[in-house]
Write a protein that binds this DNA or RNA. Structure first.
Lengths: 197, 197
DNA sequence: TCTTTGTTTAACAAAAATGTCAAACATTAA
DNA sequence: TTAATGTTTGACATTTTTGTTAAACAAAGA
């Protein structure tokens, strides 16, 4: 997640990401973004032409960031167990920094045609699913549809961060305490998903 | 989730909920809502005065619907196991009908002051957490912070429905197939969260 | 220095969304 | 039938947000 000064264009994009992904302010206007970046709003149009195009770039990059996680974790010669640990580690770190990134993607794809999402074909998940299947055959993890396994994993990682405010209100816990709970989750999730018999 | 004709006011509110909670169109305008309800936009103002007030009502009711689930499932003299089944059943059914209800709540609370959420105090979760603790002491479920247990449960239920479009694109599966997977999840979640030793 | 190129700004224009109002309409009770 | 009340509508006003333009500014090369 870059935040360095690669010029105004990058600054605007990074600021937009910060507002959407970190603050979860999905209704932010171009003015909000410009203000937060400390630049004149016209520059948003100078560099991105329109609000829509800025959004498309941000969306595209967020999708790539997600794909990258899968790719990074599942290339190399680690064992499944190690890959899983790596995936949990990287994904949780990113999601703690940008808890609303997925939420942004979801609402943006809902905004227009749902069909757009279907075009995306991801090459990184296939080997992941295959490895999960292998691991089930070996008896190391509980047998189920590998897709369920994958959904469970991402659900356990993403949801509590995504719904932090909601959970805090329902569980009546403070920000600090919640942060403490989140830090414990890496280990907890691993134990749930890859139990030591 | 009422959809009956309790007059125009109710129709507008139900339509708004449908657009937000079922379609996930968080950026819908008052015009969008009026069109979908088949009424003149002025009526939105006649009944709710302003867009903001309509949103507040919808938000408030959605929060109550969530509280109601907890309350319903955890009153009465069922065993923990039965209560859990009931909770999963009701929550999954509702979330399948309104997958974006929580997403709406999250973005709405992010929109203004985060603080607002903190005021909410929920009386229904406390007995739930206490019962979870008991069940751990009995050795029926895995020992952990009961709050983690609760987060896990809701994560497994809500996230795959919330992120359906995203998941479909990453897992390259069709709507039908996804629906089939979702129907399997009630049992799967119960087995994960309340394992038969 | 002057020109060229790219960046930034303020002022303005256009579009989109919300909000207001008076008049038309419908229903019911007197 | 008429008066009273609440509902619905279209026309208009206001506000908010996005998009455009010309001019000012800055840096670098001829």
């Amino acid at each position: 997640m870059p935040v360095k000064d690669k010029g105004t264009e990058q600054l605007i994009k990074d600021t937009a990401k910060k507002i959407f992904f970190a603050d979860g302010k999905l209704h932010a206007t171009t003015q909000d973004i410009a203000d937060a970046a400390g630049v004149n709003r016209t520059l948003v149009h100078y560099y991105f032409r329109s609000r829509k195009l800025l959004f498309e770039q941000v969306t595209e990059e967020a999708m790539n960031e997600l794909r990258q996680i899968m790719s990074d974790a599942f290339t190399g010669k680690l064992t499944f167990k190690e890959k899983l640990k790596k995936l949990i580690n990287v994904f949780m770190d990113q999601t703690m920094a940008y808890p609303y990134r997925e939420l942004f993607l979801i609402t943006e794809t809902n905004r227009y045609n749902q069909a757009h999402a279907d075009e995306v074909h991801d090459t990184h998940t296939k080997p992941f699913l295959a490895e999960i299947k292998e691991e089930m055959d070996k008896g190391n993890i509980q047998t189920m549809d590998p897709r369920h396994y994958m959904m469970n994993l991402f659900a356990l990682m993403a949801y509590p961060l995504l719904s932090a405010n909601l959970s805090k209100s329902f569980l009546k816990i403070s920000d600090q305490e919640y942060h403490k709970l989140m830090k414990q989750r890496k280990q907890l999730i691993f134990d749930m998903i890859y139990p030591t018999k």
